[in-house]
């Protein structure tokens, strides 16, 4: 069982916009420490001169005609919104 000294759970959770309980932080730090320990073996691979692959079969420069097409009606687009009013999504106040 290992913890990774570099893995600052508070910092990473902040980046991920994820509130974690103290119990979750302790558990994840340990479990992810194990996973990161396993992952360390990748450092042994010689990757000098190797190009990274973002996809197995990269498709580049995919263009579509610049023409308007029908989209979702407003009612349907907002159907899953947690809170709405007058065809707009309601959120907590963002400007004081």
């Amino acid at each position: 069982m290992s913890r990774n000294p570099d893995l600052n759970i508070d910092h990473v959770a902040r980046l991920a916009r994820l509130a974690l309980t103290p119990e979750e932080k302790a558990t994840f730090a340990q479990q992810l420490g194990d996973v990161l320990h396993h992952i360390e073996q990748l450092a042994k691979v010689d990757v000098s001169g190797v190009e990274p692959s973002a996809h197995a079969f990269a498709v580049n420069n995919v263009w579509q005609e610049d023409v308007a097409r029908p989209g979702l009606p407003v009612e349907q687009a907002l159907h899953n919104a947690p809170a709405q009013r007058d065809h707009m999504i309601v959120v907590p106040k963002v400007v004081e």
Partner: peptide, 14 residues
Amino acid sequence: AYYLRAQKVRTLIR
């Protein structure tokens, strides 16, 4: 160290 290296290892796996 992690993501970019993994993308390169993916090339080798392929």
